[in-house]
Every structure is written in structure tokens, then in C-alpha cells.
Nucleic acid binder design. Structure first.
Length: 890
DNA sequence: CACCTCACTTAGTATTCGGACT
DNA sequence: AGTCCGAATACTAAGTGAGGTG
């Protein structure tokens, strides 16, 4: 498993490179293949060192994964971007490794069953397509971002024409192979890419225009004249039931009109009352009505504490604790509530960020070389910037401009007169002050630190819990967000803007009416206090940068979160039952007469196979330009009739959530390919690929197929089912615990790759890898030494043959065994480390993998659950821990 | 339908913790 | 006792999707 020697890390760019990289154009570059037979699928060994990064043993495992079609999905591929514009010394070419699957005409059932077990084919070396211009790499024309309403009739015509060509029913079901970018490429813009470069199209002057209107217009046009075909309902009755229930609920809530208007309005001075207050009041009333209605009916069933009697509450709490002796509320053993989230909710309100502490006299801000005493408000904002001086953000123009403009708003008139240019501002003293302060804090004597810890604990105890239906539940975030500079991710147009301090006057409190209403800080008022038990939040405020609402909610270990989580997996399990039907339906729809239907079917295919996110539309200019499935644009897709020995290869390259790049080359079934050609025809790069589709319509369609089905359920389903399959495949009972855990980790990683969960290579990676290598070397020496000694002992025993020499020999044998074992463990560790350097396992573990799968696996293979889930995770998944036995099947 | 708000989940990164090592 | 380092936690941005309104 030889983890490449020193070169194992040689590809790491310097920090500066890294920084620059993030601002740089995302460049796809002519690629070359990984070494034939190389395990290109895995993320480990990415980059120039990847060929050497695996031992035979490790490869063996990997191949096993591959043969069984590791998820049939994404598989890591290594690409390397050269960034000539940065004058990098090593103008490395892309190193791509496309492992893809042979078409396999394996058909099960009427529809083309997806063949999950195709072989692997590799790309030929060299450029796959001579790709010169990459969307947004600057070398191509920068398309004007526009989604032209397309004449519906024209589309239908095209469609008809196309249909003639692709009426054949080829059973090409080739599996997706995901090409992972390698480290360098991600840094070159892979991980997060600047819009100003790759996605310039979207930041052009006209691009800020919301895309919504356009798409909708197109949709409307398309809908006209589109034949309505019978919709298949997989769960029609269920659906009907749900709707009638909803109608009933609505009717009831209308009846109870005026029942509850319990609202305590804050008495803040007029100036602080917000314009939206009226609205929110109305909403509150509306909600309260609905709630009141439900409350009345549900009370008897509830926890029986709706009277808010404190004593009763305490008893309940105690009882809850005693029940489990571990103080856990076994809510999963109780009946599930429906719309009502709680009957009793009591808490202390949020904990506010401490007020600003002015800089000491010795710390100065300089303007144009001269010290300048700033007003408190201006100084505070200056410190926000000063603190970040060594962060990449402060080098970005957008950040600087936003900051400066917002900062000036905080200045006094006189200050504004003077401070006109950011580049004349000198924050270095401020910066140094905070660096020193942090260092001083770190260097605090043990006692002092202990004291701080105790204080934090006290705070946690006081503000960090609430009482929900008689049980003490932990709050997830009980502090308001402190003021600072907005740190948008990727190429966010608002980065650097001032995020203002949250005041009690901004905060809406939600608690039960008969509870102790939290006290606002002295001299302040809440904006509003309401009692809405149809929602789960305890407090909320509107943040000024994005104008979005921030909430104080419960910890994942709470009932409210746990129940929802459980329900999520149950929905995914229901999908399991109908997914094949859905698949055959979307396959059929690829040939639909209706454009919208085709687009829907292809989009769904992507969502299902590639685990893409739904891709809601976003407001242009307000956020970074990122997309998901429905919002894909033509520029994000490239079609290759043939690539790497596979036919019908689709290349997807776009920035997804958090501006994480998704890059994948995947062979698709022929109809999909043909449809994509059709969808892209006569469109500009900036046009929507699925111009007839929105997430809303897609989800509506899904809802018809299965109650509760939405696009994101596919992600959950595919992630969980993949874990289960992988675990089954990779684990053998006779493995050591360590080996089993490695298998788990691999299965987990397969999911992470599927879901494109990436992370920046840890800053300490290079160093810690070196350390590990050193350890391995040392261990090797020890092993060699032990071998020599064993030899000696053997010889000694042969000559002497007495008891002493015998026991000495045995001792040496044991020692050698132990050392060898340790060596293996170290190697394993190193392999894992390498493989995981850019893959974030936590996200899928926490959000996509049904915990019962893992728990069942632990039980079946006698792996302690603690090896898989840490304390926090066990708390979050307490419900699963309690209910999953070793036979659990997702 | 278009637009908008709201609630809640999912996400990556920064910071802190705590134990091993020196 | 101090340092180092990975793991755990804290933080908050960025998604999804439901539902209201006109």
C-alpha cells in the first residue's frame, strides 16, 4: 500500500498557489489517462502521485469495488488543470482517468433495466475531445446570459424530427463514472470557482436579471398545445387522502377563526419597529389560528403539560429522565404528532453576542500614514476587516468594495470626509492586536482556561436548553450571530458586506404562551413574542445581508429533529419500493411527444443516477452563480459521441451548492444523449438546458408518483442504498475489526463521492502525511530488526534446544507478529488518509445514510458502534440505536 | 402562474478540545 | 508543563421545498 514516498505530497501547491487558485479560472485541460489498470475510480492518489499511491493490496480492494460497480455511479477521476495564465512552472496536463462501463444489454423486465454491472473501459490517452475552450475559461466567447423564450411550436418540430432518429430502443445502459477533479484542479478553481472567471457569463451586465421570469414564460408557452397525457399514479390514493386531509385541516382552521390572537408585541420605540411587522403580525395571527385549532384537538393526546404548570413540567422532565436512566427521552416509542410540533415550549431566548470592546489606546488605525481615532461604530467595523487581514477574502475586489461601502455608512460625516480610499487604510496594528490577543488567550494558564470553560458551561446550561413537552432538550444554536463581515462562499456578490449586530428588537420569540416568557436583556424589548406550535424554532431574526431569516432551533439529538430525520429515511425506503417503476417510467418518457415530459425524464435520470440536487432557481446577482439539475445551463454540458471507448458520454461541469465544482463524465443511455442534443440545439451557452422545467413542476410530478417524493429523496435513497450494498460487498466476517472499519469507511466514501461531498485538503495534510510516513519507515526498520533477531533466536534454539531458548524464540515470534500487525495498521491508516484527503465523509454520514444501516452492520459484524459513531452522532441517532437490530434492511 | 416568504435541511470551514507525546 | 495534532464541535451559508398572494 505504499503510499508513495515523499512525492506523495509533492503535488501540493503552496498556500499562495492555493489562494490564487481559488480565484482562478476553472480550466479543463486536455487530459491524459491514468495508467492503464490504475484504479482511477478512487479519489486517493489523485494527482501526479496517484499512480504510485496504492499497493497491490489496496488496489485489490479498489478493484473489487469497481467490479461490482462501485455505485455504478461516480467514480473518482483525476483531472489536473494546468493554469498557464498563472505561469505555473509545471504546465501539467490534465490527467484524466475515465473509467466507464461497457454497455450491457442486460435487460430485466420490459423497460431497459439499468445494468449495474458493466465492465470498465478506459479513455485513450490524450485529449478526449481536444477541448480548448472550457465554459468560462476566458478563451471562448463569453456568451450573453439569456434564456430566450423559445417558441413552443419550434420545439415540438425539432422534437418530431429528432424522434425519427432516435426511435430505436437501444438497451444502452451504461453506468456513470464520475470523474473527480484532483487536488490541483480543485484549487485551480475546482473547489470553489470565481464567477468572474469561469462563470463570467452570469455576471455580465444583463445577467443579473432574474432567470425566473424567462423560464416561466417559456414554460407557459410550452404548456400551450402540449397534449395532456395520463399521469401514472403510483400512490394515487395516498395522495388523495393527503389532500383531503389538508382540505379538512384548512376548513377547520377557518372555522376557528379569531380563536387565538395571542401576541405580545414588543414595546420598542417606533423607529425600531419594522415595516414588515404588520405582515408578520398577520402571519402570526394566521398561524396562531391554525395552531389553536389543532391544539384544542391534540391536547388530550399530547404530553399533557399544556397547562404549563411548572411542577408538572418538572415531573415530566424527571420522568423522562428516569425512563431511560440515561436521561434520554425515548420519543420514538411514543405516538407521532402531526402538524403540531409541541404543546409546551419554554426557553430563555437567545444569548446575545457581547457588546463591542473598543480598542485600547495603543492600537491605531492609520489613514494615509497618519493615525486616526475612529468613532466607535466605524472602529468596530474596521476591526472586522482588520481581523481578517490575512484571509484570502480581503484580497478580493468584491469583498473590498462591499466592505468599504458598508463601512463608510457607519462612519461619521467627518470620517467619511477623510476616508475615501481603502488602499490608504492601514489596519495592520489592529490586525496585530487581535493576533496577539488570540495568542494570549491560548497561552492562558490552566486555571484561567478552566474558569473560562466553566463560564461557557454555565452559559450552555442556562441558555442552551429548553423544555419541550416536559423534556429538557438541547438547543442547537442558542447564540445570536455576532456582527461581522459577510463571508459568502464561492463568488458571492455580497461578500464583505457588513452583517449587523442582532438586537433584541430584531428578535421574535416563539414559546408556549403559558411558559415563562424569556426576559429580553435589560433595557430592551423583543420584537415580538408569539406562540406558534406549528413550527420548531424558538427565536428568529432577519439578517440584513441576504434578508433571510435566521432561526434558533434544537439540537439534532432532539425529538423534533430526530423525528424528522427518521421520517426522511422512511420516505427514502418507500422510494425503494417504487424506484424501479419510476425508472421505467422516465425511460419511457424519454420518447414522449411532449418536450416538457422529456426534459423532466432526463432531469430525473440525472437526479437518480448522478445524485444531483434539484437545482432551484436563484435570483441573479444576489448569490453566487451555482446550479443544480433543473437549473443546469447549456454551458455546463458537453456531449461526446464517444469518449474513452464509451459511447454517448456526457460531460457535466458546473458549480453546485457552496460553489463546489461538480465534474463528471458519464456514459448515458442513447435516448438521454439524443435528448440532450435536442435540448441544447439552437441555444446559447447561457440558456437553461431544461427550459421547460422547474423544481416545482418536477416535484409536483414526483409527488404524483409517490406521496412525499421530492427530488432530494433520490439523494437520500441512493446514498443509503449504496452504503448498504457496499457494506454487504466489502465486509467479511473473518476480517479484523480494523479491516471492517476500513470497509465501512470505504463504503462511506463511495457515498461521499456519489454525492460530491468535497473538502479542502486539510492544511496539515502534508505535514501529517510525512509524519505518518516516518512512522511507517520506523516500523519497517523495527520489523527488519525483529526478523534478524528471530533468526538468531531460531538458530540459538536449534543449537541449544532448551526451554529458555525456546521461550526466547517464542517471545521473538510474538514480537515480530505484533510489529507486522502495527505496520499493516499504519499502512492502512496512510491509505485512508490519502484517500480521504479531499473527500468529506461527515456530510453523508450525518445527512444521507440511514443510521440503522450502520447500526445493523455493527451488530452483525460485532463492531462496536462507537467505532462508527462518536458521542454526538450517537445522540443524534439515538432513535436508530434503539430500534435497529442486526437484520435491519434499508 | 409568477413572485415571494418561510421553515427547515444540508454543507463546508473555522475554532476548540483533549489526549498523546516530548 | 508545553506542544502537537486529529477529532469534535461551533458556526453559519446555501440549499430544498411548501405554501401564500394577487
Amino acid at each position: 500500500m505504499a503510499l508513495s514516498g515523499p512525492d506523495g505530497v509533492s503535488g501540493q501547491p503552496s498556500k499562495t498557489q492555493e489562494k490564487r487558485g481559488k480565484e482562478t479560472v476553472l480550466q479543463a485541460v486536455p487530459g491524459r489517462m491514468a495508467a492503464p489498470g490504475g484504479d482511477g475510480r478512487e479519489l486517493n492518489g489523485q494527482g501526479e502521485n496517484h499512480e504510485k499511491s496504492k499497493s497491490k493490496q489496496e488496489k485489490g480492494k479498489g478493484e473489487n469495488l469497481e467490479e461490482r460497480g462501485l455505485l455504478e455511479k461516480p467514480v473518482g477521476i483525476h483531472t489536473k488543470a494546468a493554469r498557464p495564465e498563472e505561469g505555473r512552472g509545471d504546465s501539467r496536463s490534465t490527467q484524466e482517468d475515465l473509467s466507464c462501463r461497457e454497455q450491457e444489454p442486460k435487460e430485466r423486465g420490459p423497460g431497459e433495466e439499468r445494468a449495474r454491472k458493466e465492465g470498465q473501459c478506459h479513455h485513450e490517452k490524450g485529449t478526449q475531445d481536444g477541448r480548448e475552450a472550457v465554459p468560462g475559461d476566458g478563451s471562448e466567447q463569453v456568451p450573453v446570459r439569456k434564456t430566450k423564450p423559445r417558441d413552443a411550436r419550434k420545439c415540438e418540430e425539432l422534437l418530431e424530427r429528432k424522434q425519427l432518429q432516435d426511435d430505436d430502443k437501444e438497451g444502452t445502459d451504461v453506468w456513470a463514472v464520475k470523474m473527480k477533479t484532483d487536488h490541483d484542479e480543485r484549487l485551480a478553481g475546482g473547489t470553489r470557482v470565481s464567477k468572474g472567471t469561469r462563470n463570467d457569463q452570469a455576471s455580465g451586465p444583463g445577467s443579473v436579471v432574474s432567470r425566473r421570469g424567462k423560464k416561466r414564460r417559456v414554460l407557459r408557452a410550452a404548456e400551450e398545445g402540449a397534449g395532456k397525457s395520463k399521469e401514472r399514479k403510483l400512490e394515487g390514493q395516498d395522495q388523495k387522502d393527503k389532500r383531503s386531509r389538508e382540505r379538512e385541516a384548512q376548513r377547520r382552521s377557518e372555522l376557528s377563526e379569531g380563536a387565538a390572537e395571542w401576541q405580545v408585541q414588543g414595546q420598542a420605540p417606533a423607529g425600531t419597529q419594522h415595516t414588515s411587522r404588520e405582515e408578520s403580525h398577520q402571519r402570526g395571527v394566521k398561524r396562531a389560528r391554525g395552531r389553536e385549532d389543532v391544539e384544542k384537538e391534540e391536547e388530550p393526546v399530547g404530553a399533557g403539560v399544556s397547562s404549563g404548570n411548572e411542577k408538572k413540567v418538572d415531573q415530566e422532565g424527571e420522568r423522562g429522565q428516569q425512563k431511560t436512566d440515561g436521561s434520554r427521552w425515548r420519543w420514538w416509542e411514543e405516538e407521532k404528532s402531526q402538524d403540531v410540533k409541541w404543546t409546551q415550549l419554554e426557553h430563555k431566548g437567545p444569548y446575545f453576542a457581547p457588546p463591542y470592546e473598543p480598542l485600547p489606546d495603543g492600537v491605531h488605525f492609520f489613514y494615509d500614514g497618519k493615525p486616526m481615532k475612529l468613532s466607535l461604530a466605524a472602529e468596530e467595523v474596521a476591526t472586522f476587516y482588520g481581523k481578517m487581514l490575512d484571509h484570502e477574502y480581503t484580497t478580493k475586489e468584491v469583498f473590498q468594495n462591499n466592505f468599504f461601502s458598508d463601512w463608510r455608512k457607519e462612519m461619521t460625516v467627518e470620517e467619511r470626509e477623510v476616508i475615501k480610499h481603502l488602499d490608504k487604510c492601514d489596519f495592520t496594528e489592529i490586525h496585530r492586536y487581535f493576533v496577539d490577543k488570540a495568542a494570549a488567550r491560548k497561552a492562558l494558564p490552566w486555571q484561567e482556561r478552566q474558569k473560562l470553560k466553566e463560564e461557557a458551561e454555565k452559559l450552555q446550561q442556562e441558555f442552551g436548553y429548553c423544555i419541550l413537552d416536559g423534556h429538557r432538550e438541547k438547543i442547537g444554536n442558542f447564540k445570536t450571530e455576532p456582527p461581522g463581515l459577510f463571508r459568502g462562499r464561492g463568488d458571492h456578490p455580497k461578500m464583505g458586506m457588513l452583517k449587523r449586530r442582532v438586537m433584541p428588537e430584531d428578535v421574535v420569540i416563539n414559546c408556549s404562551r403559558d411558559s415563562k416568557i424569556p426576559e429580553p436583556p435589560a433595557g430592551h424589548q423583543w420584537r415580538e413574542v408569539r406562540s406558534d406550535n406549528t413550527v420548531t424554532w424558538l427565536a428568529a431574526w432577519t439578517e440584513n445581508v441576504q434578508n433571510s431569516i435566521k432561526y434558533i432551533m434544537l439540537n439534532p439529538s432532539s425529538k423534533l429533529k430526530g423525528e424528522k430525520d427518521w421520517q426522511k429515511y422512511e420516505t427514502a425506503r418507500r422510494l425503494k419500493g417504487v424506484v424501479e417503476e419510476i425508472r421505467s417510467q422516465y425511460r419511457a418518457d424519454w420518447k414522449s411527444q411532449e418536450m416538457k415530459r422529456r426534459q423532466q425524464a432526463v432531469a430525473l435520470y440525472f437526479i437518480d443516477k448522478l445524485a444531483l440536487r434539484a437545482g432551484n432557481e436563484k435570483e441573479g446577482g444576489e448569490t453566487a452563480d451555482t446550479v443544480g439539475c433543473c437549473s443546469l445551463r447549456v454551458e455546463h454540458v458537453r456531449l461526446h459521441p464517444e469518449a474513452g471507448g464509451c459511447k454517448h458520454v456526457v460531460e457535466l461541469d458546473f458549480l453546485g451548492k457552496d460553489s463546489i465544482r461538480y465534474y463528471n463524465r458519464v456514459p448515458v443511455e442513447k435516448p438521454v444523449y439524443k435528448n440532450l442534443q435536442l435540448f441544447m440545439e439552437n441555444k446559447d451557452p447561457g440558456d437553461d438546458l431544461f427550459d421547460r422545467l422547474t423544481t416545482a413542476t418536477l416535484n409536483k410530478h414526483l409527488q404524483d408518483l409517490m406521496c412525499g417524493l421530492t427530488a432530494k429523496v433520490f439523494r437520500t435513497y441512493n446514498a443509503s442504498i449504496t452504503l448498504q450494498e457496499q457494506l454487504r460487498e466489502l465486509t467479511s466476517a473473518e476480517d479484523s475489526t480494523a479491516a471492517k472499519i476500513l470497509s465501512y469507511s470505504r463504503a462511506n466514501r463511495a457515498v461521499a463521492i456519489l454525492c460530491n461531498h468535497q473538502r479542502a485538503t486539510p492544511k496539515t495534510f502534508e505535514k501529517s502525511m510525512k509524519n505518518l510516513q516516518a512512522k511507517i519507515e520506523m516500523k519497517k526498520e523495527q520489523v527488519a530488526e525483529a526478523k534478524v533477531e528471530l533468526k538468531k533466536a531460531t538458530a540459538d534454539f536449534k543449537t541449544k534446544g532448551d526451554g529458555t531458548s525456546r521461550s526466547f524464540l517464542e517471545k521473538k515470534q510474538r514480537l515480530l507478529e505484533k510489529l507486522e500487525e502495527q505496520l499493516v495498521r499504519l499502512h492502512t491508516q496512510a491509505t485512508e488518509k490519502e484517500e480521504n484527503k479531499q473527500v468529506a465523509l461527515g456530510t453523508s454520514k450525518l445527512n444521507y445514510l440511514d443510521p440503522r444501516i450502520s447500526i445493523a452492520w455493527c451488530k452483525r459484524f460485532r463492531v462496536p458502534v462507537e467505532k462508527i459513531y462518536n458521542k454526538t452522532q450517537r445522540e443524534k441517532f439515538a432513535w436508530a440505536l434503539a430500534m435497529a437490530d442486526e437484520d435491519f434492511e434499508f
